[in-house]
Design a protein around this nucleic acid. Sequence first.
DNA 1: GTCTATATCTAGATAGAC
DNA 2: GTCTATCTAGATATAGAC
Lengths: 217, 217
Amino acid sequence: MDRNQGRNPRTNGTRGSYAVGDERRARILDAAVTHFARWGFHASSMARIAKDVGITQGGLLHHFRSKEDLLVSVLEHSDEQDVERFFSRNPGNATEAFTAILDLAEYNAGRPGRTKMFNVLAGEAGEPAHPAHGYFERRYRTVIDKITAVLQRDMADGTVEPGTDCEAAATELVAVMDGLQLQWALAPKTYDMTGRLRLYADRLLRSITVDGSGMPA
Amino acid sequence: MDRNQGRNPRTNGTRGSYAVGDERRARILDAAVTHFARWGFHASSMARIAKDVGITQGGLLHHFRSKEDLLVSVLEHSDEQDVERFFSRNPGNATEAFTAILDLAEYNAGRPGRTKMFNVLAGEAGEPAHPAHGYFERRYRTVIDKITAVLQRDMADGTVEPGTDCEAAATELVAVMDGLQLQWALAPKTYDMTGRLRLYADRLLRSITVDGSGMPA
DNA sequence: GTCTATATCTAGATAGAC
DNA sequence: GTCTATCTAGATATAGAC
């Protein structure tokens, strides 16, 4: 089973079950998401996070040796949850990829904490000295590259219009997702983010496919 | 001349020239933009901002009675600078409006501090208790409404395809702008934000105009 | 208009008891 | 694994001198 593989190096080599410690770590990560979403990285407080979890700051620092360590762990954990979930399937064509992205948007709408956290951290990461700067650079490059590759394969297959700037389309799609998330975060209860994104994905697909087909109903 | 009308209520009724005070206020506002961009609202420090300007915290608090007051002043000042500049012209049609928006993107690329600040604050504003929450709600509604109105007028004039969801298109355009700004902020020197936005605006225009025309060269 | 001084509070991190 | 205690640093804001 090896549940702790690559996840909690500091407890390696100790004996007994890790179940309790893992559950505590998970609760800390959840609380951290909420705090980073509301306060951003710099103004989040380890003491307040600890209080939320129900432990002291000393206890929290046993699990994550610094605030930066906690941030990195939160981001890695988030990636395990959704980037892998939606992109490791290797979608066969653009329509499948776009459908997966709409699923991701719907999933994000159901997790306001995590989604708002990404809004905040993506903004903060523009500062080169920010601890998440490198993470977001890599993340955007990876995501855009993957979408670009799918579109290029469709172009080679003849379903996407020859001469299409696939990277521009992929960049645009990611930008729309992020921009809609910013607007959605202002009124999550009433804003239909997935619907907006579907309208866009449909229009984009129509404008680049050879047969002019959009998203499936 | 009445240079201070509606801008610095605390100095109303005092005598003499306001030129020195106004210059000082302007320098504070500039410094504040840089700090809000890097640290966000909560982690920005009045003491550090004062130090940057070359005065003490006490001196700073004479001009802006609190950090929240400073934030509000920065946002109002920013709006005076660009929203008015680009939207008060009342563009005659969609192409003119889109051209103005591309100008705005180019203008933003030349002011990384202000642009990154908006990235950060737009993210933070998702939190209802954030002092800029209301501001961003109003701002998005206003901007999207104005773009929607232009598109609807073109639809009535017969240059935009009947049945076009003008508000969806406007929402999308704003989302692309914001999303591209997030990506641009990660590498402002090399990322051609305006070029990316032009590609998008061209595609959008082609997909909604009756004659299928895009942006002018 | 800007200063100093001060009050009050909170931050992140370390050390060591249990 | 979690606690308490403590250190150093920094925060916002007030009051009043000049």
